Simulated assay, not measured.
Amino acid sequence: MQPAILVIDMTNDFLTGKLRNDRALKTIEPIKDLVSRARKHSVPVIYVSDAHYSADHELTIWENHSMKGTWGGQITKELTPQVGDYSLEKRTYSAFFETGLDSLLRELNVDNLILTGVVTNICIQHSAADACLRGYEITVPTETTEALNDKDYKHALNYIKTMYGAKIVSSTELL
């Protein structure tokens, strides 16, 4: 089984900017540790982050955030992609929608996605759905993802596990 780490929406706006989420700040170190271990084992690390245009439909639901080319749209400096990592832009919830992610994963022979980042009940959940429908196994390390509140976080993890057969594990159990 060939895994890949997906780091979803760990941008300045989701952490400390327009959509500030103090709960998400505690995911930075566990993601940083997991990504470091992945690199040591030649496991692909793929960042997929919002890079919105002002016409994006999602912005009618949420305020402007992670706008393409802005500080808010940049990946937080603690998780800056390294040489050999991949970085893709998205304009809606799923990491798969019109990003080229599926093609990249197939070229890398990946069959197991380890989903990290924010927001568990939105972008992580939609990305898990698309991953499942494309035949990927899904793993979600609990310390590496977060929602806006505990109720949504627990519900999303349960939904991802029940509906998509995901393994919900501690990040220390991986790699």
Rank of each mutant, 00 (worst) to 15 (best):
T99G: 04
V118R: 06
Y136Q: 01
D130H: 09
A131D: 02
L101W: 03
G100S: 01
T139K: 04
P141V: 11
G84P: 06
G100C: 03
I122L: 14
K77T: 13
R134G: 05
I122E: 06
T139H: 08
E98C: 11
I138M: 07
L133T: 13
V110A: 00
C132G: 11
W62M: 09
T80G: 04
G117C: 04
T142M: 14
F96A: 02
I138K: 02
W71N: 12
D111R: 10
Q74T: 12
L101M: 07
S87M: 15
E98I: 08
T60V: 03
T120H: 01
M67H: 06
E63L: 13
K68Q: 13
C123V: 03
P141D: 09
L113V: 13
D85Y: 05
S87T: 14
L59C: 02
T92L: 08
I114K: 03
Q125C: 06
S87R: 14
T60P: 00
K77D: 15
P141C: 08
L108T: 04
T99A: 00
A95H: 01
T139P: 01
N112M: 13
A95S: 12
G73N: 09
I122M: 12
A55T: 13
S94Q: 05
E137K: 15
H65C: 07
R134Y: 05
D111M: 04
V140D: 01
G135W: 09
Y86Q: 05
Y86I: 10
I124R: 03
E143T: 10
K90H: 04
E78M: 11
V83W: 15
C132H: 15
H65T: 03
H65F: 08
K68A: 13
S94K: 02
K68R: 14
V83S: 15
V140W: 03
A129D: 10
Y93G: 06
S127Y: 06
T70P: 09
Q74P: 07
L115E: 09
A128Q: 05
T76L: 11
L133K: 10
V83Q: 15
T120A: 11
E89I: 09
G117Y: 00
Q74S: 14
D111H: 07
L88S: 02
C132K: 12
V118E: 05
D102T: 05
V83L: 15
I114Y: 01
G73K: 02
W62G: 03
D130V: 08
K68Y: 13
